[in-house]
């Protein structure tokens, strides 16, 4: 759909789970880019803020046949009946029709956490305490992203600060169309394995659109019908099976025998 204000895009990603080696660079690049503070000493897997989180999923086989898939999990940018949007009582979450990006506005958020219970991907994080940086590190914040205050939810927005910069660069040249090379999210940029391909799904010729249509590409919880724009790719049969299964006994529960 085109308008006088430029083409509408649907930004999305395809992540190759066979390429991801779980190095964690994307998580750190994301935190640095988006001014996510270092976790408090008491932060845990369940209270810390990681817009981008890589889960190590085990195949369940024994040593030495055991296999691991590293699954980067973050906001899946659902397109249809986006679970977090309809529940927010005060419109702090919305989907941008021009980019398809699901945005979360911390300034509007009252911290009811309803969106967090609604998100099946657990991609939303709450600021349980005020953000704190060690003295000096607070002067190293990314000037393009505002830090969030205590008591609000936050999540991945495909590095919106970088989209702003790309748009401003295009605007300075008198154009409304951004150069795809100018808009690359931090996780994609930091991934040395090129496991993440990012781009406009509306552009059928783009690499991301081709990969999304390709074989061995799937989405997590696709049967919920929320049409996420983040796709995954793997040729390993057990990974595909895992992705489509429900309530598989987890790594920890497996541990109990």
């Amino acid at each position: 759909m085109d308008s006088e204000h430029g083409k509408n895009a649907r930004f999305g990603m395809v992540i190759d789970l066979d390429r991801c080696d779980g190095c964690g660079a994307c998580m750190i690049a994301c935190a640095v880019e988006n001014n996510v503070p270092p976790g408090h000493a008491s932060a845990t897997e369940r209270t810390g803020i990681t817009w981008m989180r890589v889960a190590a999923v085990e195949s369940g086989q024994e040593y030495p046949a055991a296999d691991v898939a590293f699954v980067p999990m973050f906001c899946q940018q659902c397109e249809n009946e986006t679970p977090c949007i309809s529940v927010c009582p005060q419109n702090a979450v919305e989907i941008d029709p021009a980019t398809g990006i699901v945005g979360q506005i911390p300034q509007r958020c009252l911290g009811c956490r309803y969106c967090m219970t609604a998100c099946p991907y657990h991609a939303r994080y709450f600021n349980w305490r005020d953000p704190a940086w060690p003295e000096g590190m607070d002067r190293q914040l990314n000037p393009d992203v505002s830090p969030r205050m205590r008591g609000v939810a936050e999540k991945c927005n495909f590095c919106h600060g970088r989209l702003h910069a790309a748009k401003a660069k295009a605007a300075a040249k008198g154009s409304r169309e951004i150069d795809p090379a100018d808009y690359v999210p931090a996780c994609v940029e930091s991934c040395f394995q090129n496991a993440i391909v990012f781009g406009d799904l509306n552009d059928h010729e783009s690499e991301v659109a081709k990969l999304a249509r390709g074989a061995d590409t799937f989405r997590f919880l696709s049967r919920l019908g929320s049409e996420p724009k983040v796709y995954f790719h793997s040729t390993r049969p057990w990974v595909k099976e895992m992705a489509e299964s429900t309530l598989t006994r987890s790594k920890k529960e497996n541990g109990h025998g």
Partner: peptide, 27 residues
């Protein structure tokens, strides 16, 4: 950097020091 706590504490991607991993049978 203190931000690296995300890799172990806040995601369990790479277990941090202070843990010991055992096979279920060993355990």
């Amino acid at each position: 950097s203190p931000i690296l706590s995300k890799l172990s504490q806040e995601s369990a991607l790479r277990p941090g020091a202070g843990t010991v991993a055992l096979h279920p049978v060993t355990a």
